[in-house]
């Protein structure tokens, strides 16, 4: 038992729970034990003191509830428990009545199926929004994009039309289909990002499995997490890899470009900030690679212009880029 302490370094002290208890002086046994150890190994004292200082410096403010809150929470717990008991007893007692009522409601809802209504959600430039679908799936809609779906009968027929860009988090259930100008995307329960603008489609699969179908050529591919499918109209589907754990995308307020023309980059910024960007073709044809954190338009423009030796001038809603 004594030998292991001879080798003790700072890390060992800090990982030793009895040492921490000794510093906190909460555990009498630990205090006795360590007083003995340290008097037997005085050479350990400097390291022990450093460890003690660290333990004493990692202190947090207590965020404890007030006495009344503790009582109220407990009362609510008791109430909740009694309700559950009541609920199950009630159900058993009135089973037949409930079954008949349910049957009537189902008949009523089926009639409503005949009356479809389209839900359309549109974002303008510089506007983003989040939609929760009837099955609790969520859609983060990026700037300048459009979403159309039918609310009634959603759980049976999960079909959504998208123009632009959106990040989907799909709850498990029936087949979920996203239709874009270029493609049909089918999933069961998963999270993925869809970008479909200017005849270019990019689908990124974060979790689950995503099937991407080219509406025109009927080519299809099944994407696994960490893979992006790219369809440039008239070309074959290409697949790229990305790290699903580390990748930041637009809804994290980060956008990345990999050798994209400044024309493409400014296109995206025009949408995000609702601006009009004016520049020479020689500038627009230049390639940009980098990651931009979207905060203010000035900071974002700076981050592009500075490394490329360009300057920008903002006049109202127009930005002029020059050498």
């Amino acid at each position: 038992m004594n030998d292991k302490y001879l080798q003790y370094d700072l890390e060992d002290f800090l990982n030793d729970d009895s040492f921490i208890a000794f510093v906190r002086k909460g555990d009498r046994f630990a205090v006795q034990q360590w007083e003995k150890i340290l008097s037997n190994h005085p050479q350990l004292i400097p390291v022990a003191e450093e460890a003690e200082l660290i333990v004493k410096s990692l202190r947090y403010k207590k965020n404890y509830p007030q006495k009344q809150q503790i009582e109220i929470i407990w009362k609510n717990i008791q109430k909740g428990i009694k309700q559950e008991n009541k609920k199950s007893k009630y159900f058993l007692k009135h089973f037949y009545k409930i079954a008949i009522a349910a049957a009537i409601i189902i008949a009523f809802v089926s009639i409503n199926y005949l009356f479809f209504s389209d839900n359309t959600i549109k974002t303008d430039k510089a506007e983003m929004t989040t939609i929760t679908l009837p099955d609790q799936s969520t859609v983060d809609l990026n700037v300048d994009s459009k979403l159309i779906y039918k609310k009634t009968g959603w759980n049976k027929n999960r079909h959504i039309k998208l123009e632009g860009e959106a990040f989907f988090r799909v709850a498990k259930g029936n087949k979920f289909v996203v239709e874009t100008p270029v493609s049909n995307i089918e999933v069961l329960g998963t999270s993925f990002n869809v970008y479909d603008r200017n005849k270019r489609l990019e689908v990124m699969c974060f979790t689950g499995k995503v099937r991407v179908i080219n509406k025109i050529t009927k080519d299809s591919i099944l994407l696994l997490p960490g893979n992006t499918a790219v369809i440039d109209i008239d070309k074959e589907i290409e697949v790229y890899k990305f790290d699903a754990n580390k990748k930041y995308i637009w809804k994290d307020r980060v956008i990345s470009f990999d050798t994209k023309s400044l024309r493409f980059v400014f296109d995206e910024l025009e949408r995000i900030f609702d601006l009009s960007i004016v520049a020479d073709n020689s500038i627009l044809n230049r390639k940009f690679t980098g990651q931009l954190i979207i905060n203010s338009k000035e900071k974002t423009l700076e981050k592009i212009c500075w490394p490329m030796h360009l300057t920008y001038k903002i006049e109202d809603k127009t930005v002029y880029i020059s050498e």
């Binding site: 890390e11 800090l14 022990a48 003191e49 004493k56």
Partner: peptide
């Protein structure tokens, strides 16, 4: 992860202990 965090913070203590005149916190018969 714990040890990485502690070694990141450790620099602050080392610097302080070296620069200051330390009153030893652990009172022990030497």
């Amino acid at each position: 992860a714990l040890n990485r965090a502690l070694s990141k913070l450790k620099t602050y203590f080392t610097i302080w202990m070296v620069l200051a005149n330390i009153n030893f916190l652990l009172k022990f018969p030497q």
